[in-house]
Design a protein around this nucleic acid. Structure first.
Lengths: 148, 148
DNA sequence: TTCTTAATGATACTTTTTTTCATCAAAAGA
DNA sequence: TCTTTTGATGAAAAAAAGTATCATTAAGAA
């Protein structure tokens, strides 16, 4: 509820309109527990708004990304999906098995590392991309019980 | 030179043949200072071996990746490229301006962070993806002199 | 050298993403 | 209230990216 008001206010403030397709995309992302591809968002969105178009999904994601409402999640294979992102939390931890993703903070730990890298390389580090992969508690249990 | 022997030995050991197209892809990556897309590798490779095929580039990259000879570099926009990778160094630092990329180690710093995240979330963290973005020394100078 | 078979590259095909454009609808102004 | 303006949409088409098939080639062992 609060989240809803937040993103709508953000859009308004940016001079954008609150439209039905945008609400649909946001709702789909809110209900998802893992990163979704544009195609997946379209499929789920059509259930809420049958004549949703794929192009609109792409444009909406682009808009949301520019407002830091969603973040792009990368996987080793190169494929990626969009995940709703809480402000300030740009780090994602994803389950290799079920895809469920959560965010976590971690600015401080990286600050040291970044300092050191800057001194070693001479680069001026600005942004970063950190993602962890592993098994969520549920999938650990499941794999634990299947391999006794 | 040493690198060349290394990867050839690795391929042989894996039961793969050392072919001209593979040498070409490797040479292109060696000469590149930034991550290259399959298309870019094809273009550059054709200069050395005119009838190189795109499919072969994809397959060669897949092979090299499975042997950890190259790594996939992700960018915010989702686009990515392949970079020659020194063994053990899986972290990339890329220049936002010229695309030049270098690798750096950083296992220890992350170990703490990962420990903490594991305790907070209950996830069992296995792999990770860390990339830093910024300006390389050359581009810092260039941007510094243009904005006095 | 010869032989076996992994590897190649041309072609066709599927999937994903971008562009274009006519239409629609929500704000803004008279 | 009624236009006018402009942002937003969705269909269609085009472009780009990636994958599968298969006859041919050539690497490397015998």
């Amino acid at each position: 509820m609060i989240l809803e008001l937040q993103w709508e206010a953000l859009l308004s403030r940016a001079g954008c309109r609150i439209t039905e397709p945008r609400r649909v995309v946001m709702r789909v992302l809110e209900q998802a527990q893992r990163p979704l591809t544009p195609q997946e968002i379209l499929e789920r969105g059509k259930l809420l708004h049958p004549n949703l178009g794929l192009v609109t999904v792409y444009r909406t994601l682009e808009l949301f990304e520019s407002l830091d409402l969603v973040c792009l999640v990368h996987r080793e294979g190169g494929c990626h999906g969009y995940l709703l992102s809480a402000p300030g939390h740009r780090h994602v931890l994803m389950c290799d098995s079920c895809g469920r993703a959560v965010e976590f903070p971690g600015q401080d730990d990286l600050a040291q590392l970044i300092d050191r890298v800057q001194q070693h390389t001479g680069y001026a580090v600005g942004d970063h991309l950190l993602q962890l992969f592993g098994l969520c508690p549920e999938c650990q249990e499941a794999s634990g019980s299947s391999v006794p």
